[in-house]
Write a protein that binds this DNA or RNA. Structure first.
Lengths: 224, 224
DNA sequence: GTCTATATTTAGATAGAC
DNA sequence: GTCTATCTAAATATAGAC
């Protein structure tokens, strides 16, 4: 509390070292699986300093998780509300942005999804994800692209799920895919770079194919 | 060890009650997040009985995880080696089977993927996933369908990742999707049933679109 | 087989010297 | 701000009565 921003930025402050280590260990092992001692070791600092700087394991986790969610979702907001790009351009931007992010931090999706599973209301609500997505400009563009009237909202959601899945799933499944296909980290990464070109094509072909409204359960009547 | 199979199958034996409870709690909270007390409570039995029957938390977990992996992957093996079904039929079978399984146990994918992340070699190796997939009949069918020669193996993997992702990702993302789109469990489930018809269509359109080999990083030279 | 009581181990947090 | 030593709480595991 009485702590101010460090004046010099030579090498990372102890506080910063701990945060960096915490991010890494929490992402790898999850909250329950992480020992505070692991974080201290990873940071190369004394265990007692964690409590000195962050009060408790839980507070440290909340801090990291908040920052992580922000990193993951904030860039999205500007992108999906940009009124100057076409749907196709947005898909390409989206793809580039997320694949680059996830190549640098592959554990991000499973980390976030685990947290949301443990605590569904908590953080997703704080990010106002529902409002952000529902009120977005991209949603209008999606509707127009699909022909507006006769396609139910559930069809839209199905498409969006596929798009997010194509970007995110390979990283969630990374350890499994590496095993199944005997991939090195380099090969996996090269494949993810390829995806920057491929995902927009797959999206395109998904949208250009005619969709039969009868495929969708209309009774449930989902309204966005 | 000295324990034999129960003769009568009236109501679940204590051992079975514990296993069932363990499955449920481990799937929901993960290994580290689970307290043995939670399992005992969930099963409605005394805590000491867990150790009486299963020796330790870890042994109980290994047992559950082994069974879970078997459930998830064994049905796959017969299906992908069936020489009497076309690729299209396989895709439909695959879809039906996995969506039904996952609707009844939505936590399965994230549970398994978490475990593999914590312990990548361990269980996936015991299931021989690499051998099973590489030697499968379906892989030949995929190659034929794609025109055999000029498509690199990495393209095949990309496709397979998409297929698995379309089936599995919605369940991994379920808590997040429910938040974003304000879905009830019933609505989510109805959408997953819709997917039984939709996924094969999307796969079809993905395959029927011409693929340009230049989209793939050939240098990495992945060979299955 | 099941229970109560307890031992053991592990992990988060803090006091107090420097 | 940092460290050592220690406290406390929680969770796993077991001993022994029934």
């Amino acid at each position: 509390m009485s702590k101010k921003i460090e004046i010099s930025e030579k090498d990372p402050s102890t506080e910063e070292k701990i945060k960096e280590a915490a991010r890494k260990v929490f992402q790898k092992k999850g909250y329950a699986g992480t020992r505070t001692r692991d974080i201290a070791d990873e940071a190369g600092v004394n265990l007692a300093l964690l409590n000195y700087y962050f009060r408790s394991k839980e507070k440290l986790f909340d801090l990291i998780m908040g920052e992580t969610m922000l990193l993951f979702f904030q860039s999205l907001k500007a992108l999906i509300n940009n009124e100057n790009t076409s749907l196709q351009e947005k898909m390409q931007d989206f793809t580039n942005q997320y694949i680059d992010l996830l190549i640098s931090q592959p554990q991000l999706p499973i980390f976030i999804l685990n947290e949301i599973q443990m605590n569904p209301k908590g953080l997703s609500e704080r990010m106002c994800l529902h409002q952000v997505v529902i009120g977005s400009y991209i949603l209008k563009q999606f509707r127009e692209d699909l022909g507006n009237n006769d396609i139910p909202d559930s069809a839209l959601i199905q498409m969006i799920v596929n798009i997010i899945g194509m970007l995110v799933f390979p990283f969630i499944g990374k350890p499994l895919l590496k095993e199944i296909f005997n991939l090195t980290d380099e090969q996996f990464q090269a494949m993810m770079y390829d995806r920057k070109k491929l995902v927009p094509l797959w999206i395109e072909s998904m949208f250009s194919n005619p969709i039969n409204p009868s495929y969708f359960t209309l009774i449930q009547n989902i309204k966005l």
